[in-house]
């Protein structure tokens, strides 16, 4: 087995791992997938070290060590699922290593997302229905405002993220917009509760999933990634709370 081949295997594994971390996969799945690809490519004794911001991989008794950095972390489960499928196909020898590498490139660039209007409709449904469930008093009055304001908040976040490089700032901006609109709705029609509207419309941005995932990472023994993701989730919570809090404080609602 020559060094070039080993390097190529390591490169392929890292490409797979990077896509999975960027798309919000669990750490044990990332490591498992990378080990599997290496093993199926005939490279035993691969060493993998993953963190939420970068991953390393080396092979014993060769000089081959490579690093890949992870700059962006979002949740895009279609990508995780496609990498998973590719790894299975490679294990079943349906595709070769070169094809796997090309397909990974394709997954990274060309994974289709739902069109923006569908995501917006999803947010509207989520905000309004969860608001009713959470308030637990079948509050139909805020149903439509929650849907509309939730969608506006999501769109604000979506577009702000493209202009602002820091994700937390985009979250704070979206939360402030939500708070402002909810307070405005309450002022226009006092029968609407601004609290209920904010709770419903914030749900699409709330990092509850990130927190739960970080706890699971911690329990599973991935201390570094658990702490990293947990801190990220807490920062998001602070950004959201700060955005809403500032608006409420200034408007005195």
């Amino acid at each position: 087995m020559d060094d070039k081949y080993v390097d190529f295997v390591v490169d392929t594994c890292l490409a797979a791992g990077k896509i999975m971390i960027e798309s919000g996969s669990e750490m044990y799945r990332v490591e498992d997938t990378m080990h599997r690809i290496a093993q199926n490519a005939g490279v035993q004794s691969a060493r993998v070290f993953t963190t939420p911001t970068g991953l390393f991989m080396g092979v014993d008794k060769t000089g081959s060590v490579q690093i890949e950095e992870v700059k962006e972390r979002v949740i895009n489960l279609e990508k995780v699922s496609r990498v998973n499928d590719l790894s299975r196909q490679f294990a079943a020898k349906l595709i070769s290593l070169e094809e796997l590498r090309d397909c990974l490139e394709d997954v990274d660039v060309n994974t289709a997302e739902y069109p923006l209007w569908m995501q917006a409709v999803g947010t509207a449904i989520l905000s309004s229905t969860l608001m009713v469930l959470f308030m637990n008093d079948y509050d139909w009055y805020d149903f439509i405002p929650a849907a509309i304001i939730g969608t506006i908040g999501f769109l604000t976040f979506y577009f702000a993220k493209k202009f602002v490089n820091v994700r937390f700032l985009a979250e704070m901006l979206a939360a402030a917009v939500l708070g402002l609109l909810a307070t405005a709705a309450h002022t226009i029609n006092p029968a609407m509760s601004s609290d209920a509207i904010i709770i419903g419309s914030l749900m699409v941005l709330v990092p509850g999933l990130a927190l739960t995932n970080s706890l699971r990472d911690l329990f599973a023994g991935h201390l570094l990634s658990g702490i990293g993701r947990g801190v990220e989730a807490i920062l998001t919570a602070i950004a959201l709370g700060g955005g809403v809090g500032i608006v409420i404080r200034f408007l005195g609602a």
Partner: peptide, 17 residues
């Protein structure tokens, strides 16, 4: 129905297959 719809809606925003 609402818990079903809420989950479905969220699934759309995180690009579930």
């Amino acid at each position: 129905s609402f818990s079903f719809l809420a989950t479905f809606g969220f699934a759309l925003t995180i690009n579930i297959p």
